[in-house]
Amino acid sequence: MVSKPQPHPANHEHIELFLDALFLESGSSDNTLSAYRTDLTKFSDFIAPMELPAVETQNVEQYLAYRVDIGLSPRSTARSISALKRFYQHLIREKQLRISPMETISRPKAGQSLPKTLSETDVEALLHAPNVEEPMELRDRAMLELLYATGLRVSELIGLRMEHINQNQAVVFVKGKGGKERLVPMGEEALDWLARYLKFGRPALVKHATDFVFVSKRGVGMTRQTFWHRIKHYAMLANIKSDLSPHTLRHAFATHLLNHGADLRVVQMMLGHSDLSTTQIYTHVANERLKSVHQAHHPRA
């Protein structure tokens, strides 16, 4: 039987020196000190056998993903983040560190709910549900593929104009919330289905001059509600039991990228999030990634 790695022997001393400083500087109560000791010890156990000053931001992100994965509350995680932030600020003051690994870590918003997402198997079933011999369903297949490949918001997807699509470079130009602009790669599969739709589907649907990429059966721009009803229709055809939301494929895009090793900041840029803390909520699904990281890097894996 493989034994569990033990915390670095210096970590206990690091924690106790921090708590002593906290008591002397702030006069923190015994309850506060005890709570901080518990939070820091749990983190030390998680990163074992690493020493606390050697921690990097990705280690903290993995710990936060683990906490959510085992069902700990956002309130508890917020307290743990506070303890870690104060601990690493202490190490910087003591000149044991130059940059805190907590610099880009934000506390979870109160009441922030976890996004509903789909497994990769469910996504495949959903993408294959439309009958692509029909122009309208070919349009829907292209929309679903593009949504999953890019992580666009539904409002961004239906608002796409022809000038926003660059098939040669396989990118989509998006103007998101607050007028913020970004370029998002669409990938070969989405590009292929988009090209098929533009060649065979869109000409059959367009009845009036329009520069919208995706048009309704009346030949005009689509509404969010129309596309949402289409998603629910295909979910029924694919026998998907999970509750869906209009942004389910956006959530799946983010979580599946993280599961396959994508950097959180890259996902943040592609989603158009201004704050990394908004993207961090997706780390709860990084179970597969955590397992692979452990197997690849832990000496006893």
Score class of each variant (00 low, 15 high):
residue 212 F to N: 12
residue 220 V to R: 10
residue 231 I to V: 09
residue 160 L to T: 05
residue 117 T to A: 15
residue 92 I to V: 08
residue 224 R to G: 02
residue 242 S to P: 00
residue 66 Y to Q: 06
residue 61 E to H: 10
residue 284 H to F: 05
residue 54 A to W: 01
residue 214 F to K: 09
residue 59 N to S: 14
residue 269 M to A: 13
residue 215 V to I: 11
residue 49 P to E: 10
residue 173 F to M: 14
residue 89 Q to T: 15
residue 23 F to M: 12
residue 31 N to D: 14
residue 182 R to I: 03
residue 194 L to S: 02
residue 243 D to F: 08
residue 122 D to T: 03
residue 5 P to N: 01
residue 37 R to Y: 04
residue 162 M to Q: 13
residue 265 R to G: 11
residue 87 F to Y: 00
residue 130 P to A: 10
residue 112 Q to I: 04
residue 98 R to K: 13
residue 258 L to V: 02
residue 188 E to I: 09
residue 190 A to I: 11
residue 91 L to H: 11
residue 45 D to N: 15
residue 132 V to H: 01
residue 188 E to D: 08
residue 20 D to C: 02
residue 193 W to L: 02
residue 155 S to G: 05
residue 258 L to A: 01
residue 213 V to Q: 06
residue 65 A to K: 04
residue 145 E to G: 13
residue 99 I to N: 13
residue 172 V to E: 13
residue 244 L to H: 01
residue 168 N to D: 15
residue 55 V to I: 05
residue 219 G to V: 10
residue 28 S to R: 09
residue 74 P to W: 05
residue 102 M to G: 09
residue 261 G to K: 05
residue 84 L to I: 06
residue 262 A to M: 05
residue 221 G to V: 01
residue 61 E to F: 11
residue 278 T to Y: 02
residue 62 Q to I: 04
residue 133 E to H: 09
residue 17 L to H: 12
residue 142 A to F: 07
residue 213 V to H: 01
residue 25 E to D: 15
residue 247 H to S: 07
residue 123 V to L: 00
residue 35 A to N: 08
residue 121 T to S: 14
residue 84 L to Q: 00
residue 103 E to S: 07
residue 214 F to V: 12
residue 119 S to Y: 04
residue 293 V to T: 09
residue 268 Q to M: 10
residue 58 Q to P: 09
residue 202 R to F: 05
residue 180 K to M: 12
